[in-house]
Nucleic acid binder design. Structure first.
Lengths: 356, 356
DNA sequence: TTTAGCACTCAGGAGGAAAGAGTGCTAAGA
DNA sequence: TCTTAGCACTCTTTCCTCCTGAGTGCTAAA
């Protein structure tokens, strides 16, 4: 059933007011809004109906109304006005991103911090491999007394290295031989196809370096198998306590705990596959502990089979418009950054700074 | 002035009781302890004196006593009984550590998680270089169309790599030339001595690859300069909220915030240089925000010029004996692990499992 | 269809009394 | 001289109760 325009307007106003004030909204407050040309009694009737329809809830008889999960859902999907980032906001996000980020996991960490700071909420950041990874190239570098460096160039263009120490002396020639054997037999092979016969083949071809092969292959296998979500990072937990709904320590703790635990590993499953920003309102959420909490997440492309995800966690009452806008901007900026790593371009935006 | 044995016994009992109960301790509670053979009145007199001496405090007239910072200090330095780890505890710590930890920063992360779990408090973990770092060896590996991998073997035996993409084509010969130039001119040179003339020398010797030199040298310099504390990690913040003193959200938030911020960068300065476990009681602490909080830290050796540090943050009332015991055990285990990476030995302990 | 008015509900704060915990002091006992 | 029992006193905490005010739903009039 479609809502009347007026009902939508009332609902939107209530959610907006509730987002700012964190307190149940009464009919009078709504009636006093500048462009609301009805009396509180009229609003009251509308509110009663919206409550009956399940979009609003009443904490108790004589309190105002609070949006229900369904109410938020509607708000997020249809009612909320676009939040335009101000020039200042885009600028500070952009310069933050431009700081070069070296490694994958450092990136995840930094992005999480920036997002958390930009939204004043705890943030999640994650980077994961998509699809199957293989080794593009093996390199072995002698590093002195019985140790060498193994360098793997992966199909994702990640470079992984490991210093391997062995009790026996290793010669340059041995390493060359082993390197050739590995590059011949084990490149472009996914983890699933690392069979015993592959091990045997490498060891056969490696001649005097055969004894080194197992260590190298084990490490390679481990690297290729490493759980898809290479790194995940949560920061800014303390910002949760800024939110009035988490002045209740128990509530706060439940949420913080489930952020700390591996609950978040499930997050990817919940996220729809499309790109774009997605809002998980309260009960739609990953973990039961998060049922009074909303999660806003966005995916972005890192290129080369890697996918990134950033998100924030906050009260269902959070300012979806603002949070969504900032997250999207982040995601967009990051995608562009990775698309053309040489010429760090950032999306144009914020020409007309104003808030909605 | 030395305290009488009885005063010490009373003080210890009060701290112990307060640690368990988190509530001011009255004379009656102390008198009722199994091996306390005095009446509450006697205890009361002792308590009055201990209060006058500054070891105890009274929240208000009719509450029991609470240890003052000086009281905790004395407790930690002299009174607390050794906490013997139970067999179960040592075992679970040991197996946790035995899981191999790949990279330095992963290690820091894992250790922090384990410590936090073992102590039920937020934990800090940190690994940092000691002294000056240099490059032991440069390697450049061709990686296809205009990109190559730079591999640095540092004096700490860390291996750092970076995939460098350049607009121009790079030839194998160029890389060889550049590699030779780098190894000749820039190995064993600390960051402080990366002068312009060194840049010039490398570029001169690199011939046709001269244009690649600056990128490589810049990255090297950055790596060598990277702040001593390579990685720092804080986890388990949510456990702080378990402690009754942090049911006060504002207090909790202040502490969490200062954990999140870079306040911790100062930690190394505060820590005495000796090894061993150190307790920072309340006001002795790093940041003003932590004045109602204690920090227990231990250093451990990672070898090769790297130093590790683990610690926990909790209420001044925390169970120092237990926390100290667990931290020390962790540190000891980790040191041993790094001393002989091949034969993972763990310290013997917990033969006689019992709590003090 | 909208609005004014009114009776009703209920959370939250203020005030006050009572309970309970703990103290310090005094005087008696070992 | 040291220890302990007893008691008056202090102060927090808890539990009432009462009151206020915000907000509602309903009815009747515009």
């Amino acid at each position: 059933m479609e809502l009347s325009e007026r009902k939508k307007k009332v609902l939107r106003s209530i959610v907006d007011l509730y987002i700012r004030g964190a307190e149940p909204v009464g009919s009078k407050a709504v009636a006093e809004l500048p462009d609301m040309n009805y009396s509180s009694a009229t609003i009251r009737n509308e509110m009663a109906e919206l409550t009956a329809m399940g979009y609003l809830e009443q904490p108790h008889t004589s309190a105002g109304r609070v949006p229900s999960a369904a109410g938020y859902r509607l708000y997020v999907d249809e009612l909320m006005s676009d939040y335009r980032l101000s020039l200042d906001e885009t600028r500070s996000i952009s310069t933050a991103i431009e700081e070069k980020m070296q490694r994958m996991d450092k990136l995840v960490e930094k992005v999480a911090k920036m997002v958390s700071q930009a939204t004043d909420l705890p943030a999640i950041s994650m980077a994961s491999r998509q699809g199957v990874v293989t080794v593009k190239r093996f390199d072995l570098i002698l590093a002195g007394q019985g140790s060498f460096i193994l360098v793997l160039l992966l199909s994702t263009d990640e470079v992984v290295n490991k210093l391997i120490k062995l009790p026996l002396e290793v010669s340059e020639a041995d390493l060359k031989l082993l390197g050739a054997a590995l590059n011949a037999a084990a490149t472009l092979i996914p983890a699933g196809e690392f069979t015993q016969s592959l091990f045997d083949r490498v060891m056969g071809a490696a001649g005097s370096a055969a004894s080194l092969a197992p260590v190298v292959l084990e490490f390679t296998l481990e690297t290729l198998r490493r759980p898809g979500n290479t790194s995940i990072m949560v920061t800014g937990q303390h910002r949760l306590l800024d939110q009035p709904e988490y002045r209740d320590v128990d509530k706060a703790q439940r949420v913080l705990t489930s952020l700390d635990e591996e609950t978040l590993a499930n997050l990817p499953d919940v996220i729809r596959n499309e790109n774009g920003t997605q809002v998980l309102v309260g009960p739609e959420n990953v973990a039961r502990e998060l049922k009074d909490t909303s999660v806003v997440v966005t995916k972005f492309d890192i290129g080369d089979g890697m996918q990134g995800m950033i998100g924030v966690v906050g009260p269902t009452r959070m300012d979806y418009a603002k949070v969504t806008a900032r997250l999207s901007y982040f995601a967009e900026s990051l995608s562009k950054l990775f698309a053309k790593p040489e010429q760090k371009q950032l999306p144009e935006s914020g020409e007309d700074p104003k808030e909605a």
